[in-house]
């Protein structure tokens, strides 16, 4: 089986598996974030559970970070190999005649998502790690804030129109990435094109609705602060 993952097809399957895992994570992340629109208390409770549960923090979180890092590194490895496979470019290439813009530019939409993840880590993940594991404060409360601090911190982050704008742009690129990536992941794993038609519909719905939902959450907190 190790030989399989060294082959070009094996690498694509590994890429697809990490993509499916990340798409599942994104759905779960969205389900928690949308709670912030409906109930401050429910969002705080779930955030505190996610942020302090041993299994989530020390098993699932490292798996997630591995998944993200693996997806990006494998994406770059595949891109380098693909560039080597054509060292002299065409003088005239009509790519739009036979493929979508999204399918031809996964590396660029991916790079925008990578930049967004760095921003997102600076905004939320690094401060969380600092509070919990460097300062040792696992209480989830903050001086001057009633109840848990998570909802308050979320609202504070979305005050800045520049940050909200950056999030909106990043989610548009995420949508473009998913529009090709969703169905492509199943195809790489040997999904038949007959089933792919229904998968394409699910993929389109997922790739539009989930990023749109995240954009809605960012705008909602920006305008309801």
């Amino acid at each position: 089986m190790s030989g399989f993952f060294k082959s070009s097809i094996g690498r694509k399957v590994a890429m697809a598996l990490s993509a499916l895992f990340l798409m599942f994570f994104l759905l779960q992340h969205f389900a928690i974030n949308i709670l912030s629109v409906f109930s401050e208390n429910a969002f705080n409770e779930v955030s505190h559970f996610m942020g302090t549960n041993f299994l989530i923090q020390f098993v699932l979180q490292p798996v997630l970070i591995f998944g993200v890092v693996f997806h990006f590194i494998m994406g770059f490895i595949l891109e380098i190999r693909n560039n080597k496979a054509r060292q002299i470019s065409y003088v005239k290439n009509n790519g739009s005649a036979n493929s979508t813009w999204m399918s031809r530019n996964m590396i660029y939409t991916g790079l925008v998502i990578l930049a967004f993840i760095i921003l997102h880590f600076i905004d939320f993940w690094f401060p969380e790690i600092n509070t919990k594991y460097i300062q040792g404060d696992m209480s989830g409360v903050h001086e001057g804030v009633e109840g848990y601090r998570y909802f308050h911190e979320l609202q504070e982050k979305f005050v800045s129109p520049i940050r909200v704008g950056a999030y909106v742009i990043a989610f548009i690129f995420l949508s473009l990435h998913l529009m090709h990536g969703f169905a492509s992941a199943f195809q790489s794993m040997g999904g038949s094109t007959i089933r792919k038609k229904s998968l394409q519909s699910i993929g389109k719905a997922y790739s539009i609705l989930i990023p749109l939902g995240f954009i809605f959450i960012a705008l909602y907190h920006h305008f309801n602060h």
Binding site: R11, L78, A97, N98, A183, G190, T193, I194
Partner: peptide
């Protein structure tokens, strides 16, 4: 190179070979 499922090959193939064959090979 690696297949990234753009589908360009299927469109340009003079014999209409389907992408299904790539999925089957995988």
């Amino acid at each position: 190179g690696n297949c990234t499922n753009t589908g360009a090959c299927e469109i340009e193939c003079p014999k209409g070979i389907s992408l299904e064959n790539i999925a089957r090979m995988n």
